[in-house]
Design a protein around this nucleic acid. Structure first.
Lengths: 204, 204
DNA sequence: GTGTACCGATACGGTGGAGTACCGGTACAC
DNA sequence: GTGTACCGGTACTCCACCGTATCGGTACAC
């Protein structure tokens, strides 16, 4: 219960006005993201977050001016790319691993994408944070995988199926729950890659 | 403006208590659907719908007990399938036409799907209405197209890419706006079908 | 020890939407 | 013509949330 900061090496000489530790801040963000995923954007309330993290609304409003800014900050805190480490030397295998990685951990990010749906339309800051935190890094990493495959000569440059690969992966991830009522897990996505993506690219 | 019922054969002997004509009812539903598409579920308010259709909240609440029930009724009124008329005798051409049809008119339905995102989680009635009105009919029609192709021998039965076709189409429709910021129009979807779906099925 | 500045709690004003209640008008039945 | 039942309008209660203000407690600086 008490402030369990122990030592916090980065916050020594610098002028950190807020006494909130980064860990504490992350607690807020995690609460926001959980709430977003489970109940949608409108269900994220400053009062709810304050209550569930045992802080006060004042504290939240001291750090972030408005709710959209708060949510945007939480999104940015979530930035982390899953596809960057993938580089097996074979495009087919890279794509399989990307599919597996997507299935493993990305139900979460897809949930966020879903939750923010229309809220994004109205607040440009939210929109920017969403793209910056979730969409663009993953897309870029995926395109890098594809570019390496092209550079190795596995697929001819400009192959018409190339441009659709990222959207296909994300699309399947997003649509399977809607169409079939089941999560798009790693096994499903790997099967999809092997049944559709690889053949479309002319790979075995 | 006046009650333009003319004749309404179904409402003769039976006890139709409400004096609302079906056309009037459809006005309400259209307002709900428009609002859903443009601003999301939480933006649909009984007061807003009442105002924009020049009826009174009382009227709405006389017909439907709660807002979710009202929205569900509106969804069900929207049921209409777009893919059923497609049957050119060639699977490739059928899929091209389906893609075009999807691009033409279905930004609308996809908008609904998006708008209802999480609201669906909380109200089973809404969830049922959504599936019943939007998801299942289109999927079924698409599967029928595929089954005809299989029956004609254009694609071997059990081809692994078959099961993914509906999700692919819906997925692209849904993800392009997110990933590229542009609508997935008919031309885009037809190109996608030709670049990915047909090759994956082993069609020219 | 003293000061300062932040934290957590709580109370408050303001807004907006869900439902409800009531009322006058009117179309249709008979 | 009279009655009935529904429609549209409006006013109302209730409630949840945003964002602000105020206050006591306390950790840390010096």
């Amino acid at each position: 219960m008490t402030s369990q900061d122990a030592e916090r090496p980065e916050a020594v000489g610098t002028s950190r006005r807020s006494k909130l530790t980064p860990e504490r801040e992350q607690e807020f963000f995690d609460a926001v993201l959980d709430q977003l995923r489970s109940c949608g954007y409108d269900a994220v309330t400053m009062e709810g977050i304050a209550a569930s993290t045992r802080c006060s609304k004042s504290t939240l409003y001291r750090q972030w001016k408005t709710k959209p800014q708060f949510v945007a900050a939480a999104l940015r805190s979530n930035r982390r790319v899953r596809f960057t480490d993938i580089d097996t030397g074979s495009l087919a295998e890279d794509l399989r691993q990307a599919a597996a990685a997507a299935g493993e951990g990305m139900g979460k990010d897809t949930g966020l994408l879903q939750a923010l749906g229309h809220a994004v339309m109205e607040d440009p800051e939210l929109k920017g944070a969403l793209r910056e935190a979730l969409v663009e890094p993953e897309i870029a990493a995926l395109r890098a995988i594809l570019a390496r495959g092209v550079a190795r000569g596995e697929v001819p440059a400009g192959h018409p199926a190339l441009e659709y690969v990222p959207a296909q992966l994300f699309g399947m991830l997003r649509m399977r729950p809607v169409l079939e009522g089941e999560q798009a897990d790693a096994a499903y996505l790997v099967r999809f890659v092997e049944a559709v993506v690889l053949p479309a690219l002319g790979l075995p």
